[in-house]
Amino acid sequence: MNPIAHSPHAHAPVSIGKVMGTVLLALTPATLFGFWLYGWPAVNLWAVALIAAILGEAFVVRMQGRKVRPVLMDGSGILTAWLLVLSLPPYAPWWIAVLGSLFAVIIGKQVFGGLGQNVFNPAMAARVMLLISFPLEMTTWVAPATPGFMESLRITFFSQPIDGMASASLLGHVKTEFTRGIGLDQALTGYYAPLDMLWGSRTGSLGETAAVLLLIGGLFLIARRIITWHAPFAMLLGVAVPALLFNAIDGNHYAGPMVHLLSGGLMLGAFFIVTDPVTSPNTALGQFIFGLSCGLLTWIVRTWGGYPEGVAFAVLLMNAATPIIDQYVKPRIYGRDRKGAALTANK
């Protein structure tokens, strides 16, 4: 006979590994599209980032005297590195990916105590670290191209100059043009093609450009009940509403909602970053507030900040506010009112 076990004796067919696996599956279409769009250098970067994350995490977990296998099996390290690499310029040198991945899993997660303990989204923390430390490498964008495999090795591992293909992302271009005193009417000409933006064949990060594929991945996660609509929808709303308002007031200085929604890392951020359970509030209302604030901050950074893109900054700021949101946004307990006092017994 088995020893006495406490109920419940049944369990839903869910596990951490399955959750992480489903998220990776949802990221796959956008990732494959990035590979197709930018060719072998993107594949190299992706592989290097994942290998660095796995080895780096294994190393520090071993140093802590914990078992390595279960930690790697939870899949969170791979997911973190995967999300990070999607936000990197596709032709970035290998050490950017390695440094970013190691920072994400070690400083971003393991230093806090591992899975579930980190305050900040590890991928976004790493991205901001890279952006501040290596602004040149992190803002060297290329137009979609497909160099051969050998050439890709030279690009990724030997920092072959990529001047011939150099380009600027839409948000970066707009910001540069603003500083030169050029308005949106001219800046967007030849740069903004809504359909290309939608499908993602544009200049940008490895896996952030395919808005539709990211949206499909996100909807898949909602359908599989891995995430809920609250945070993603709120984040898109938080960007779209001020964009719409300011664009209507001064169309020459403020980009419209479609430009904002389809550019930068917004789609990736809305469906895969602000939905990170560990670093976001745990009630539906809390997640909505969190997402809305992330969106608003993103729009503010993009519009008035020093950097063209603001998703990572917005997410980190709101990560810090998550405990406060959880403190104030709590579900009403059965039999009690919102303030926690027992209900009165009138029927």
């Binding site: 049944a10 951490i16 279960p70 579930g116 009630t283 039999g335």
Partner: peptide, 27 residues
């Protein structure tokens, strides 16, 4: 037959699934 034997217990990832099912609206 009823559930996986001695499943590995991971850390709480604060996914909030438990909040969504608690009939008493606890955390």
């Amino acid at each position: 037959e009823l559930q996986e034997e001695t499943p590995r217990v991971y850390a709480c990832i604060k996914c909030g699934e438990c909040l969504k099912v608690c009939p008493k609206f606890l955390n």
